[in-house]
Design a protein around this nucleic acid. Structure first.
Lengths: 212, 212
DNA sequence: GCGTGTGAACCTCTTCACAGCG
DNA sequence: CGCTGTGAAGAGGTTCACACGC
């Protein structure tokens, strides 16, 4: 296994392959082909082979990929063989729903703590997690450096939440807040933007006559 | 305004520009530059100008773009000047949270109905929306063809939810379910995949030494 | 024969650099 | 002088086509 330069697009696809492989394993398949994976993930089979070959020769010509071996290798590449803990910052509607839904079927992630700046939320339990005051983030988490924080605070409060997370040593953030957030180099930040997805859908809806 | 072929990436960015412009308008700005937009959206100013120039000459050289005019034009391009109604299918943790959070600050979208196949949910009210039985989707929505459906049903139930939506005439779907879904041509489908975002964050966390 | 691995062609998107206009 | 609009150059990603191994 070599540590190549690889694009985020590829990483994203590897994540999808991993999902398909887990499902294939559940279904009792021992071997899988690039064609099967490509169909399930909605991309070309050549792309699948390129993605996988970039990290080593995992496949057997004529038959395909061993499900177990390939999954283990992909998890090794992604680092999800030892998934980092996930904390939730902001226990409003979305934060509560995330905690309550859990992270089953996602390759082993687990929520380990939840925080909110509202004193009224303090001590509330959701799916076995007890909400703690936001100011205790640094002291309550053993290794924020290796923790993913999901931010879902009130509108307009995103930046201060992110700032305090970063001060506490957190380097990986997934924001459900709409606001664009500023982060220093070395920190990874991703957004879940329902409203942008709606805009994309609206656009293709209004332009459907020409497209399809 | 010309209807060019334009990539989804551009549409996605236009959505971000629209957000920035609404905020700029709220802040009382009348004019905005590509440099300002680019900084806020985290991309190069040349890209901003390319995106905008693809649809017409909205800018004034030497000063920038009129906030009001540009926003109106972008909303015209996206079709969000008349945002389609949004329905929620599946009123579990996520569905409830979406309904309860509302769609304020997203450019005018509104939830108009919610459905669930669980009889126990029938009649429950969330933020002014009363949950209806899933089988009534077709009869309860006046124009599903111009409606966006957010699917957030139980794991494994995504495909049947999508199938019945499509049978009922729906053409735009945003899925919070993890499963890969099959759709016929002419239907737009997008995913919100928290687990893939976590994988991407995990990967960059584990490979941080080499990257930054 | 079947499916992988891979160089080459192809295509798309981004960045650069600058002309042109207010 | 500042900022837009834009051709040209560059980078990155995808598809194609085929050789190789099972």
């Amino acid at each position: 296994m070599v540590a190549h330069k690889v694009s985020e697009k590829t990483i994203r696809r590897l994540s999808h392959y991993a999902m398909c492989l887990r499902r294939a394993r559940r279904d009792g398949l021992a071997v899988i082909t690039s064609g099967f994976l490509s169909h399930r993930c909605g991309i070309s089979s050549a792309a699948v082979r390129k993605d996988l070959a970039a990290y080593g020769d995992f496949g057997k010509q004529g038959s395909g990929y061993d499900v177990e071996v390939l999954l283990r290798n992909i998890e090794e590449i992604l680092g999800t063989c030892a998934p980092p803990p996930v904390i939730v910052v902001g226990v409003g509607n979305i934060g509560r729903a995330l905690l309550a839904s859990g992270l089953d079927g996602t390759g082993g992630y687990r929520y380990t703590a939840a925080f909110d700046s509202d004193p009224a939320m303090e001590g509330v339990g959701i799916s076995g997690i007890t909400v703690m005051p936001a100011r205790e983030i640094a002291s309550a988490c053993s290794d924020l450096n290796d923790t993913i924080a999901i931010v879902a605070v009130s509108p307009g409060r995103g930046q201060e939440a992110v700032d305090s997370l970063i001060r506490a040593g957190c380097r990986s953030i997934l924001s459900f807040n709409l606001e664009p957030l500023e982060i220093p180099p070395g920190v990874s930040l991703r957004y879940i933007e329902v409203s942008t997805e709606l805009d994309v859908l609206t656009h293709s809806m209004k332009n459907r006559v020409e497209n399809a």
